[in-house]
Simulated scan of single mutants.
Amino acid sequence: MELLIHPFYQRALAAALIIGFSNGFFSGFVVLRRNALSVSALSHTMLPGIAAGILVTGMLTQASAFVGALFAALMVGLGSVAVARGNRIAQGTALAVIYTTAFAAGVAILPRLDTRQELEHWLFGDIMAVGNADLWIAFGIGSLTLLVANLLMRPLLVTMFEPNVAAAQGVPVRFIQYLLFALLVLSLVASLQAVGCVLSVGMLVAPGATISLLTDKTPALFWGGGLLGAAGAVGGVLLSATLGLAPGPVIVMLLGSLFLAAWIFSPRYGLIAGWKK
């Protein structure tokens, strides 16, 4: 509790609350679309983006890392959607090829950088180092994601499940697909400072997956995921101080533990409930 008087700890808790809720909310789309592997691929794409940002600017800063990660993830994510416009190549296949190519480019660049040791900070995150500018970025991205997702909830869901029906109803299907991937990339980049590019996928999958084991209601999947994501992120920061561990891994481990608990004890879909049938 003594840590609460320190501004850096207050900023860490605020960042955990904002990022945890916005990413937890968006995890509903990830779970419904069943594209968790795509999220994992995009999260790893941020590393070569950071490396490219260092190569261009000559230094590792918050701005170069953020812009590089955002650019790389957007290019890979939206590029896979563009390649899959025809029926010949599936989007998952296109994403796998483009993402591995981008990752290989990042690995090739790394030996030329003088800041390889500092990259660990971006691989696994350091929420205790969040500044005021980082908070505003997280708040802006979270607000944009929540606003767009709620305003366009129906066309987003119809496009995900029945793109032909959506097109017949006048929904701009291609634009919605690009928009969904863009929001996914923004959510990933928002969690970069908190848990890093390696663990960011956990905050975008675990909350929605956990809630999906507890309810069949779509609104509860989104808002419940947001609440669970916020609680897990804040709880992870608080727990990390007690355990003396880095906050990022603790946040993801806590969310993973909640998922396992739901998988075991869920009244309808849990492991124990399956044994009783």
Rank of each mutant, 00 (worst) to 15 (best):
L260W: 01
A90E: 15
G226K: 10
I109L: 15
A14N: 06
L180Y: 12
R34I: 08
I251C: 05
L254W: 03
V83M: 10
L110N: 05
F8R: 06
K277C: 12
M59L: 11
V173W: 08
L152N: 03
L55E: 03
R268H: 10
I98D: 01
S187T: 05
V39N: 11
G170N: 14
L186W: 12
L186C: 15
L179C: 12
V201E: 05
P249W: 00
L255E: 06
I109E: 13
I50Q: 06
T100E: 14
G196W: 00
A16L: 06
W136R: 08
I176S: 06
V148G: 08
E2N: 09
V237R: 07
G28W: 12
L135K: 09
L17N: 07
E162Y: 14
V107K: 07
A96M: 13
L239P: 05
L204M: 11
R116Y: 13
F222L: 12
F21K: 06
S266K: 03
L213I: 10
G274N: 07
H121C: 00
A168M: 07
H121D: 05
F71Q: 02
L184Y: 04
L186E: 12
V130S: 15
S191F: 11
V250P: 03
V171R: 10
G49S: 14
A190W: 03
A231G: 13
G208A: 14
Q10F: 03
A241P: 02
L157A: 11
S64Y: 05
R268V: 08
L146Q: 04
A65S: 11
P267W: 04
M1W: 15
Y178K: 03
